[in-house]
Design a protein around this nucleic acid. Structure first.
Lengths: 110, 110
DNA sequence: ACTTACAGTAAGTAATGGCTTACGGAAAGA
DNA sequence: TCTTTCCGTAAGCCATTACTTACTGTAAGT
């Protein structure tokens, strides 16, 4: 529980391939739901549902523009994931260095 | 497709809680499958399956040691995720700024 | 007021994914 | 070679969830 639930939810939200694709499109450029759905192999309501998950995960936000809803990246969610990853990265580097040294020693022993 | 799909896949691999725990244990110290499974609420084959996913995501690698398979982190996967997140961070800030400016303009128009 | 365009929600179905048990196979020791 | 230890794979089960169609609602134009 060392990390925020937000970051963990974000990771889980990216578990679905379709949702990853939607996320990538929103990341490329803020867009309306219809635009995002266009070209995707799933229906527009499906995209709406995915966007809801991404929103609850803190990865995207929306703003109304007429009857259209423009979705764009939420910096907070991205930041949370970055922090989580940075923390993992630190401990991982330490462990890996130790392991690499050990491997090198075993090489020298032959 | 502006970003590497591989890195997104890596992030997705960390979506499952059990898989995160396994990844954390491997991150803490390179270990064999049996060691990792010990203390976990799932069976050893389940751990094997999770490790397979993590491996395909480029997050871990393995080396044989007798009949044991030692799993350790793959720094390249971690690095790829960091680069992706850094890139996302930049675009997220841009999208958010654009959103904030737009809101400010609409405020002024009233 | 009527229509059109856009999007979220409900409900039911299909598919995915994580888990288990059972099995097979390679390495090391007796 | 026989046994033991370690591990990956196969098959099937079950809970979750992703998807579709149908519906409702809101904003804007005519």
């Amino acid at each position: 529980m060392a990390y925020g639930k937000t970051a963990l939810n974000s990771l889980a939200a990216l578990g679905d391939p379709t949702r990853r694709e939607i996320f990538a499109r929103v990341a490329a450029r803020p867009s309306a739901v219809g635009e995002i759905a266009r070209g995707l192999p799933v229906s527009r309501p499906a995209v709406s549902q995915h966007l809801k998950v991404l929103k609850e995960a803190g990865l995207v936000r929306e703003t109304a523009e007429g009857t259209r809803r423009i979705y764009f990246l939420d910096p907070r969610g991205i930041a949370a994931m970055r922090e989580l990853l940075d923390s993992l990265w630190t401990t991982a580097l330490g462990a890996f260095k130790q392991f690499a040294d050990q491997l090198a020693d075993e090489e020298n022993d032959r």
